[in-house]
């Protein structure tokens, strides 16, 4: 009896792990299917025919009217804009959207707006703007910042990929930093109320922290509801 103790300990640990894995699997799948259903709804709203592979998941949003169904999410799209090294991240939740355009050096633009019925529209400082269509897990559109214009087609990404932002007071200056983290690659810019934008310190997406001149910045994952 006693000599089976260690084996029982191992099996108990295995059982706990199995239960937690099952629960985690369910949690992750629910989050995914919410997004999938959302994208289907968006697709219908945009007037395109849903593909056969989606019809199974498309049963959920039947109550949503064809037009003006908000993009519920939470969902994040991210990737490079066309013909450039500039990254774009778009985070949407409950019909609200936050987007960030960033090249890691000098180009950066925060935008806020709404998404419904397959279309999104965002605005930002200095007449920055973004318009796009979403559906099938991608957003396509155009974004302008400080007189420059890019077209883009960015897909959904999964955490920890996404959009991060931190604000802090470092030596009496307000620092705002933004990062776009996609599949292990990141670009980030920080601005102070005094100077030019410059490259943000490296973000650890697992902890959401970055270190600036010995001060720790705490970044939050932006989900679209606000900055």
């Amino acid at each position: 009896m006693k000599r089976n103790g260690p084996l029982i300990t191992l099996l108990a640990g295995l059982a706990v792990a199995a239960v937690l894995l099952t629960l985690s699997f369910t949690a992750a799948r629910n989050a995914r299917s919410t997004n999938a259903a959302q994208n289907d709804a968006a697709q219908v709203g945009a007037g395109a025919a849903p593909t056969a592979s989606e019809s199974g998941a498309a049963t959920a949003p039947t109550s949503a009217p064809a037009e003006a169904a908000p993009l519920v999410g939470p969902v994040t799209y991210a990737g490079k804009v066309e013909g450039g090294k500039v990254q774009l991240a778009i985070a949407a939740k409950d019909g609200k959207v936050v987007a960030y355009l960033c090249d890691g050096k000098s180009v950066e633009q925060w935008l806020q707006g709404t998404a419904a019925g397959g279309e999104m529209s965002l605005t930002g400082k200095n007449e920055g703007s973004l318009t796009g269509s979403y559906g099938n897990g991608v957003v396509t559109g155009t974004v302008t910042s400080k007189g420059r214009k890019w077209t883009f087609r960015v897909p959904t990404v999964k955490p920890p990929s996404g959009l991060y932002r931190a604000t802090a007071n470092v030596r009496n200056a307000t620092v705002v930093a933004g990062w776009i983290y996609v599949n292990g690659q990141q670009v980030g810019i920080m601005t102070t109320n005094a100077g030019e934008p410059r490259e943000a310190p490296l973000l650890d997406p697992n902890s959401g922290t970055a270190t600036l001149d010995g001060t720790t910045l705490y970044a939050t994952a932006i989900d679209g509801t606000g900055l």
Binding site: G5, A12, G13, L20, F25, P160
Partner: peptide, 23 residues
Amino acid sequence: HRWTGRVAFLLTVPVAVHCLYAV
């Protein structure tokens, strides 16, 4: 010794599951 060890091990299991599954 056995029981505190078991508890310690069981405490690490949820941590490991989260590490491996989510991160």
